[in-house]
Amino acid sequence: MHFSIAGTLELAPLSPTFGVDVLNVSAAECAASPDLQALLRAAIAQHLLLRFPEQAVTPDDALALTAAFGPLMDLRSASHVPGRQFLQVLSNGIDADGKRCGDGNNSAQIWHTDAGQWDVPPGISVFYGVLVPPSAPKNGYKNMAQVYAALPQRLKEQIQTLKAVHHMYPRSVDVLVHQKGASLPREQREVGQVQPLVRRHLGSGAPVLYLPSRRDSVILGMPDAASRSLLEELWDFTNQQHHCDWIATTRRGDFVVFDNTALVHNREGWPTSERRDIWHLVTEGEAVTPMFTRKTLNLNSTASVVSEAPAY
């Protein structure tokens, strides 16, 4: 079933609970229209993910459309389109001179949020499919507000005011690094950005489960064994919540805009012999706001701020 916003955007649901295709206008048209951009901001606030299917997008289009959702943020230590500071290239390609065309990575990745180890993580993330290999990998997106809503009450009460350290670990979201990467000494894992396990989604006011990608991350006030046990339990529960997922191949020309404050994402790997190029852009976010504090804690009120799924 398709529906429209103000008779201008034709949207089609991608899953029963979040995500829509934008069908009747192109990404390039939206990049040039402040009126359409205002409608897109309203749409992503409600649906958390927008896909413009199979578009022809220039670097300037990609930059302009992403900037409609907030000031662009430079992804540090990343490969970029030449002359485009904010346009990162995710690619395992090698050019004629033997140099990498992007980050050089074709690994499968676990569920994660972008740059949770930064003091202010990105607000919006964008993927644009430039070159897709025959063994096209799928990207997954998971709604962590819905995951939180599904948590047993016991876990909600346990984590309501806990905070974890999002420490730096090279390629921490790669599946093999996740499975085999040895833990750093605790004193190193205590260095990083401290974030609440339950954050407030600024758009809706809903509580969002906000987890560090490393299961050996330090939860403040807890010994290693207890901290790891709790994070393993939370991630195991998260991985089982398939009703919170949308999974699809990023095709050539797909322009995907998603809310990095409410969704986590992952991807499959693909053969090293096959090249895949994705443009990646992000906008500035806001400092992570704890859902609960000692002054505002009221578990009986949480149901009122959990957004209901849109009626498709």
Results as ranks from 00 to 15, higher is better:
His2Met: 15
Phe3Ser: 04
Ser15Cys: 07
Cys30Arg: 02
Ser33Cys: 08
Ala38Tyr: 13
Ala38Gly: 14
Arg41Gln: 15
Ala42Asp: 15
Ala42Gln: 15
Gln46Val: 09
His47Val: 02
Leu48Met: 02
Leu50Gln: 06
Leu65Trp: 06
Ser77Leu: 13
Val81Leu: 06
Gln85Ser: 15
Leu87Gln: 01
Gln88Glu: 14
Val89Asp: 03
Ile94Arg: 05
Gly98Arg: 11
Lys99Asp: 14
Lys99His: 15
Arg100Trp: 13
Asn106Leu: 03
Gln109Arg: 07
Gln109His: 09
His112Trp: 07
Gly116Arg: 10
Phe127Ala: 04
Val130Lys: 06
Leu131Met: 05
Gly140Thr: 10
Lys142Ser: 11
Gln146Pro: 00
Leu151Met: 05
Lys156Asp: 09
Glu157Thr: 10
Leu162Cys: 06
Ser172Ala: 14
Gln195Tyr: 05
Pro196Phe: 01
Leu202Thr: 14
Leu211Glu: 05
Leu211Phe: 07
Asp216Lys: 05
Leu220His: 03
Pro223Ser: 00
Arg228Asp: 04
Ser229Val: 00
Glu233Ala: 12
Thr238Pro: 03
Cys244Phe: 02
Trp246Asp: 06
Ile247Arg: 12
Arg252Phe: 05
Arg252Thr: 11
Gly253Asn: 01
Gly253Val: 04
Val257Ala: 07
Val264Met: 12
His265Ile: 10
Arg267Lys: 06
Arg267Phe: 09
Arg267Asn: 07
Arg275Met: 11
Arg276Ser: 07
Arg276Pro: 10
Thr289Gln: 15
Phe292Tyr: 12
Phe292Met: 05
Leu299Glu: 01
Ser304Ala: 15
Val305Gln: 08
Ser307Met: 10
